[in-house]
Design a protein around this nucleic acid. Structure first.
Lengths: 361, 361
DNA sequence: GCTTTTTTGAGGTACGTCACTCAAATTCGC
DNA sequence: GCGAATTTGAGTGACGTACCTCAAAAAAGC
């Protein structure tokens, strides 16, 4: 039988109340007594029953996820992944609510964030560009005791509690080494990014160039083209650049716009003729990978990302330590050959797992 | 607030006892009343609080993980990952016990398995070669109502409840496409496997050949060398084969023996001169990847594998549905550039995260 | 109608932990 | 060694569910 708090009390020769005070770090216990209790815990190998603890606390965690109202497939997939993780977490007294803000309006975002604490949120997950207004808003939240995690793109200057996402510089390096090897260390590479103001784009570019410079001197990355999330702009810029630089053998797409890219390459008769590496597995990039239009995708598992977000925020809300290992999001390389089946990536299917509540258990 | 059984009773206009009888399918309730209760459940969207239910039942999950007593780094890492997942799960009434069986003795394994149900196990996770004796043992377990999952290498003929691991054929295909592209579609490839009787080895080889045949006709994979887990054998075979076939530009190591491989390549002065692709991230393969002796590693996250194992077995023990998406283990490609930091891969460091039980809530 | 059976209600105890209260015991300052 | 402050003990009532008993109510059989 597993030891319980009562066993600890008996073993330590103190009362249940004292054990409870020690376990929950409540004040009013002498150092010596604390040690006696901890010794008993160690001797018996006591492990607190979290389910009973949560039940007794009857604590619930209301968490806000704040995303831009972009209609990009990536943001949509992320929203779906968060929603699904939220539903799964409902059984462990966690409630997740999605909020959107106008993508180009930092003040609207700040107003939204300022309003959250009054509505009883235990934590906030945020995907947004790093602006001065945002920095103040995040600091305001944290001053009120609401933990904040940055999602996908880090916000180091805001003092956020945690960053949930991949190391974008390492992701860029990974893209670089794949490009270098796939091209056999020769040729020019077109580089596309949505905006060079976004931190993740800058980091990816840095990592990409670092590897090419060091290990693949034969590959020449061209200056980044900014597409600002516009498919039309992307198509025009790519068509022009390709017309003027015949030595291009690869394309590195750091941001979104997979559909516009495959479209313009198709129109130019270049489908599957270039080595195309992009980021984020979405329905389009998946399909383009399967058809050979895209060679490799560097991605992060949005399901893991969403679950990690919830775990981290709950831990922060409780002042608990994190299991850093579990929270690290890996940089995944997806080729046609290891493309996970659609059912896998929870983010991309909206399967409303209509479960029978009665028979369950 | 989530509805509770009391809310159901009020909503349905019956007593708590009746709701309880309906929920737990106890006899003595009229059809009409059952319907009234179920309607109330549907109206309120009641979902049973499994943690409270388990608490009330005083139910806990004792799970056995059965591994060969091989001292290979992979099995050791796996054992460590399972152990760590077991410790983390201890907070949620789950207890994991590791068992080892003599690697070459299927009958000892069968005897071990036969003894488990009598010792109150709620589920078994098993990594073992697929023999007739094992098949019967697994069937015996399942007949006694003990769910069984296959670990790492599938056991389809045994009727196991689930397979936790990667699709090894797809993993072989992934190795194939990397090899083909890295070699620029030219050269011979040495293929090493521990035993061609193991299902995972056969599947990997199949996937590898499939891709080379279809997409990289310039690459010629040589017949597999069997190493039977012996480093000495591996070194001898590799040295001989390399001496006789000067066209070899790549090595595909499907099984273990990373250390022996890098050693013999070093002795032949071929370190970092060949494209070497192997499976499983272990301390050695990680180090060889960092030093450039190994080009790429196809791996699975053992931390995920271990946690998935526990989740699946618990779900099976409760007859609950699985979240297939969460349980699919991805095929990961690791290059030097996206090598996760050691702290990450819980499986690979034996950091006995001497955790303070007190503060850990 | 009556009895017999089936169905329902009311209530209790338990699971392991949390979060209190109030009084008693101990330690501390001086 | 006295009063004040601190520390400890004993106890209680949650949390949501399971599982039990006993009696009351309703339905069924005759």
């Amino acid at each position: 039988m597993r030891p319980t708090v009562n066993d600890i009390a008996r073993e330590a020769g103190v009362s249940l109340a004292t054990v409870d005070r020690v376990l929950n770090a409540r004040p009013g216990v002498r150092e010596k007594t604390v040690k006696a209790v901890n010794d008993a815990i160690a001797r018996l190998g006591y492990v607190r029953d979290l389910t009973a603890a949560n039940l007794a606390r009857n604590r619930s965690y209301r968490i806000a996820a704040v995303l831009p109202d972009t209609e990009s497939q990536f943001v949509q997939s992320l929203a779906a992944a968060l929603d699904e993780a939220g539903q799964a977490a409902a059984t462990s007294r966690t409630e997740l609510r999605l909020h959107r803000f106008p993508a180009e309006d930092p003040h609207a975002l700040a107003a939204l964030l300022a309003d959250l604490p009054t509505r009883g949120y235990a934590g906030v997950a945020l995907m947004a560009p790093e602006t001065p207004v945002l920095r103040d808003a995040v600091r305001g939240l944290r001053a009120k005791g609401v933990p904040v995690v940055a999602l996908v793109s880090d916000l180091p200057t805001t003092g956020r509690d945690h960053f949930v996402g991949i190391d974008n510089r390492a992701a860029g390096r990974t893209a670089g080494v794949l490009m270098g090897r796939f091209l056999g260390n020769a040729g020019q590479v077109l580089v596309l990014g949505s905006s060079l103001l976004a931190r993740d784009m800058v980091e990816r570019r840095g990592g990409f160039d670092e590897v090419l410079l060091r290990d693949f001197p034969g590959v020449e990355p061209l200056p980044s083209l900014e597409t600002h999330g516009s498919g039309r702009l992307l198509r025009l810029a790519v068509a022009e650049r390709l017309a003027n630089t015949p030595g291009v053998r690869g394309v590195y797409a750091m941001g979104d716009g997979h559909r516009a890219l495959t479209q313009v390459l198709g129109e130019l008769g270049l489908s599957a003729k270039l080595t195309v590496i992009c980021h984020e597995l979405t329905p389009h990039s998946r399909q383009a990978l399967a058809s050979g239009e895209i060679t490799a995708v560097i991605t992060q598992n949005l399901g893991h990302l969403a679950r990690s977000t919830l775990r981290v925020l709950r831990a922060k809300a409780d002042n608990q330590p994190l299991d850093e290992g579990q929270e690290q999001i890996r940089i995944e390389i997806v080729l046609r050959e290891n493309l996970p089946t659609p059912a896998d990536s929870t983010a991309e299917t909206h399967s409303s797992t209509c479960q029978e509540p009665i028979k369950s258990l």
